[in-house]
Amino acid sequence: MQRRLVSSGSYLEPQIGFSRAVRVGDFISVAGTAPIGTDGKTDVVGDVYRQTVRCLEIVRTALEDAGGSIEDVVRTRIMLTDAKTWEEAARAHGEVFKDIRPATTVMEVSGFVDPDWLVEIEAEAICTPKG
């Protein structure tokens, strides 16, 4: 099967050796996605809900760039620096996935590369023919 790499354009991708997403056949895996604004800086510092919204926007774009859609998502992982904020992240996740309902894990991590990031999200999708 052909392997398709999807780039976000980050200068870190070649340095670290990762892609925003990878598609192999009908499967798409979206890497841990941080709340990065269009200016390359952390978006909405201090707001878990809005950072989660931003992460999900980036996930949606990566899926579409790989030829999939948010409706194809079968698993997500929400990583938080503070588990007590899970309801804020879950609210944003629920707004996107309320009807799709992928398998989801919420976990606390000790931190991210940028200390302003409060959340990162990973997603996996299986693209099936529409119709």
Rank of each mutant, 00 (worst) to 15 (best):
G9P: 10
S10D: 07
S10W: 10
S10P: 03
L12E: 14
E13G: 04
E13M: 02
P14V: 06
P14T: 07
Q15F: 13
Q15P: 03
G17E: 08
F18H: 07
F18Q: 04
F18W: 11
R20W: 11
A21S: 09
A21W: 05
A21L: 11
V22L: 13
V24D: 06
V24R: 06
V24E: 15
G25N: 12
D26Q: 13
F27N: 08
F27L: 14
I28A: 04
I28P: 03
T33A: 09
A34K: 08
P35L: 06
P35C: 02
I36Q: 03
I36A: 00
T38H: 10
T38L: 15
T38E: 15
D39H: 02
D39W: 01
D39V: 07
G40C: 07
K41Q: 15
K41A: 14
T42M: 04
T42I: 14
D43K: 11
D43W: 10
V45F: 01
D47P: 01
Y49A: 04
Y49H: 07
Q51P: 04
Q51L: 11
T52P: 10
T52Y: 09
T52V: 05
T52D: 01
C55Q: 09
C55W: 04
C55D: 02
E57T: 13
V59Y: 10
V59G: 06
R60Y: 08
A62Y: 05
L63H: 01
D65I: 03
D65G: 01
A66M: 04
G67C: 07
G68Y: 02
S69G: 15
I70L: 15
D72H: 11
R75F: 13
R75K: 12
R77K: 13
R77V: 15
I78V: 15
I78N: 06
M79T: 00
M79V: 05
L80G: 03
T81W: 03
T81R: 13
T81I: 09
T81E: 04
D82E: 11
D82T: 06
K84T: 12
T85G: 01
T85M: 14
E87I: 11
E87R: 13
A89H: 04
A89D: 00
A90G: 10
A92Y: 10
A92E: 07
H93D: 05
H93R: 09
E95R: 11
E95S: 07
F97R: 01
R101M: 14
R101D: 11
P102M: 05
A103G: 09
T104Y: 03
T104I: 09
T104V: 15
T105R: 12
